[in-house]
């Protein structure tokens, strides 16, 4: 995640949206673009068709509950979703998203966001401006211990940097 402002239109979902509906198992063997085209189709058939790069997914509690499948977080990356903002996350989905450099942000006030609202987010300062309703809401900043990894753009670029600098001991193959 770069320290830049995220701007996009809101797609609003409810509580306990699970990872099976984000990345249905029946498409596991397909490529990531095919998988992503079915993202959330069971609950909103229009989402994967109409979501635009930079759009922001807004959700309630326990977003991403269930399976460890990284395809759940990757589907949003593939659809070029700019950020997710939810009241809370399931643990594996949360870790997967941040590891892919997909900003998974937390706010208690997501109920104030309506579908199609235009949002601007500063993920580092923890600010969200709703351009449609002209209201600002507070979001939690990214956890401090993950900032270094997130600033690098996710786990892979972070590991590459550390390995190249000799900061992590690895077995060469």
């Amino acid at each position: 995640m770069k320290h830049k402002l995220l701007k996009g239109k809101a797609w609003v979902f409810g509580d306990e949206i699970n990872s099976d509906v984000m990345a249905p198992g029946i498409y596991f063997k397909e490529s990531m673009d095919v998988m992503a085209s079915h993202c959330l189709e069971a609950i909103d058939p229009l989402f994967a068709k109409e979501v635009r790069p930079g759009d922001i997914v807004v959700a309630g509690r326990n977003f991403g509950v269930g399976s460890a499948r990284e395809q759940a977080a990757l589907a949003f990356k593939e659809l070029k979703v700019g950020a997710i903002i939810a009241k809370s996350y399931a643990r594996i989905f949360y870790r997967n998203s941040l590891n892919f450099g997909l900003p998974a942000l937390i706010s208690e006030y997501v109920n104030e966001i309506r579908p199609k609202d235009e949002l601007i987010i500063n993920p580092v300062l923890g600010e969200l401006e709703n351009l449609t309703t002209k209201k600002n809401i507070i979001i939690s900043p990214i956890p401090e211990h993950l900032m270094e990894m997130i600033s690098a753009g996710g786990l892979m670029p972070y590991l590459k940097e550390k390995i190249d600098n000799g900061e992590i001991e690895v077995r060469k193959k």
């Binding site: 460890a68 990284e70 997967n96 996710g154 786990l155 892979m156």
Partner: peptide, 12 residues
């Protein structure tokens, strides 16, 4: 853990 995180574990 997801495969991306398991990648980190398998490496480090």
């Amino acid at each position: 853990f997801g495969a991306i995180e398991m990648t980190g574990v398998v490496v480090t």
